[in-house]
Every structure is written in C-alpha cells, then in structure tokens.
C-alpha cells in the first residue's frame, strides 16, 4: 500500500502529508516514551508502521512535501470495532456479559487516548501544516484494573471484575507529552472517565 502512495507522491505531489502511525514503533523498554525514544518494534505491526514512516518520509522529502508522522497510543471510543484488551473490550463485555476479564490483576499501566483527541491533533496538524513527529497520548497512564473499575462503576448494574493467574511479567508504558504540548499548547484531552462514560451510553 505504502509503495503505491510513495509512487503517487512522485507523480502528483500534495500540499501536506499526514501519516497515522503507532506507538508500537517504540522499544518496549522506552521510558518515558518521547519522540526521541529509541524505535525498536517487537511486533510486525510496529515494524510495518516504522517502515511505512520511513518510506513516506523519504518520498515526501524528495518532493519537498511537508510531512508529519503521528504516533497515537491505544485509542478508545464509541464505535470502535477492535476488541483488543483495554477500554473497548472492557466496555463491550461489561455491557454484554456483565463481567470484565483482566490479565493477572490488571496491574499494567497504559495511556489511553480518546479517538476525538486523536482526530483533533490530526486536524490541527492539517490546519497548521505541521511537520515532524508527534506522539499522541494524554500523558496520564492508568492500570487496566483502574479502567475496569471505572467501567464497572459506570455500568447500570453490577459488573464482575475477574482476575486470572499472570502469564507474563508486568510492564508499564508512560509518555512524556511535552513535545506535543509545545507544538499545540492549547490542546485538551478528554478524561478517561468522561470518554468511558460516553461509550457506556451506547
């Protein structure tokens, strides 16, 4: 896919290039995660994004096209069809099964960013023709247990939060969001509680 886009850029340069990548490009050991953190993806997903970033950067540079690579952390929000571990799945199972299954006791801390906040950053990038690299996260990491507790608390009836024997070591991910805030100093993020409350209404 990206090869076709790069070829298209050669023939028909555009005014601005925005690529939505992923924080999966970073090493699992990056702490806190910043735009300058080492990229060493441990998944094919992360590797794919990194290769795409490089290819698109090169194509854009060759044509003098301003380009920005956006690396959001875990996105959640209403209507998300993904069912990966975290807010989306927790809301879904809380509503349908009245339970939330955690890995271990849900100790891992992650940053969860609402889809509207990601879209807002993309909009600002387009409006200002932003260049470079931007992580998109809130800067506030919480444990999966805390997410489950919020979801459980928002549910109309009782929701069981289930734990399971841990299969792998606990890892955390925190972001230093200084760079994004300096680029867009008026940026605001939806609180996790407010974002989850919206999802629970649907």
């Amino acid at each position: 896919m990206v090869e076709s886009v790069c070829n298209a850029l050669k023939d028909q340069p555009c005014a601005h290039l925005v690529y939505v990548s992923s924080d999966a490009v970073y090493s699992d050991n990056a702490h806190p995660v910043r735009e300058s953190s080492c990229c060493d993806p441990t998944s094919f997903h992360g590797l794919m994004h990194l290769v795409r970033e490089r290819a698109l950067e090169a194509a854009a540079r060759a044509k003098g096209i301003p380009a920005v690579m956006i690396r959001p952390t875990g996105i959640y929000g209403r209507g998300d069809t993904h069912n990966s571990y975290g807010p989306n799945r927790f809301v879904r199972t809380a509503l349908k099964e009245r339970s939330i299954q955690l890995f271990g006791k849900g100790e891992e801390q992650r940053d969860h960013v609402h889809i509207e906040d990601v879209v807002n950053v993309i909009r600002l990038c387009i409006e200002r023709r932003t260049e470079g690299l931007l992580n998109v996260a809130t800067g506030q990491s919480v444990s999966f247990f805390q997410v489950a507790e919020i979801v459980s608390g928002l549910a109309a009836g009782p929701v069981k939060v289930l734990t399971a024997p841990r299969q792998s070591p606990i890892t955390h991910r925190h972001f230093d969001m200084t760079h994004l805030l300096r680029v867009f100093p008026t940026l605001q993020f939806k609180s996790l509680h407010a974002g989850l409350a919206e999802m629970m209404k649907t």
Partner: peptide, 20 residues
C-alpha cells in the same frame, strides 16, 4: 541531534522534531 547522540547505532531512530 539528541536522537542521533543517544542511539547512534540504531537505524530506526528518527528525526523527531515537529513544527506547527
């Protein structure tokens, strides 16, 4: 330059600056 200094052997470390 920060990135280059810190991960001089890492081919994946990008130029991270952004400007709006």
């Amino acid at each position: 330059s920060r990135s280059a200094g810190r991960h001089a052997r890492c081919d994946f470390c990008p130029d991270t600056g952004s400007r709006a």
